[in-house]
């Protein structure tokens, strides 16, 4: 959903427990991410490639704000260093076994480290989900989707 200036992604899923902390060695937090090729139409699903980098929006339940990440291959993801691209906001709530997470950012890219969402354009998008708590999912230990399509009308 978008209002011409900002785009909103709404996620809702079942989660028996609210895992919103990483405050001790065995404690891991729930997380979700979306991945979109940064400037090519397609890319490699697994963190992109050197010449086909990907832009990732990463939400984790313990983080103050979601992170804007760029990656150019396995093992390379990093939080984009410029402040302009760390423009993502969110709303999160866990209640009665259900996570509600809304992630929003300006449609226009804050910098070259971010995808611009343009009306009428189609994007490839992939999703990832990490189950925290006792499942201790983090890093490559996650559930990923195949490439999906995102059409901005």
């Amino acid at each position: 959903m978008h209002n011409g200036n900002d785009i909103f992604f709404f996620y809702q899923w079942n989660a028996a427990t609210e895992n919103n902390s990483v405050a001790d060695y065995p404690i891991f937090a729930d997380a979700i991410a979306m991945e979109i090729p940064l400037f090519t139409e397609e890319s490699i699903l697994c963190m992109g490639a050197m010449d086909k980098p990907v832009n990732i929006i990463f939400w984790r339940a313990d983080l103050p704000v979601p992170e804007n990440i760029v990656a150019g291959g396995m093992g390379t993801p990093q939080i984009s260093p410029d402040e302009a691209s760390q423009n993502i906001r969110h709303y999160q709530k866990w209640k009665d076994g259900i996570w509600d997470v809304i992630i929003t950012r300006p449609m226009a890219a804050g910098s070259e480290n971010q995808v611009s969402f343009v009306r009428g354009k189609n994007y490839r998008i992939a999703f990832a989900y990490w189950k925290g708590g006792a499942y201790a999912e983090r890093g490559g230990h996650k559930i990923v989707s195949e490439w999906q399509y995102l059409s901005i009308r």
Binding site: V22, D24, Y25, Q78, R138, G139
Partner: peptide
Amino acid sequence: RCRGYRYCIKGCPYKKIYYNP
């Protein structure tokens, strides 16, 4: 570079890597 995955802590049999929460 570290993202706090703690795989290194599991990997080290001497448990000489620590996690800063």
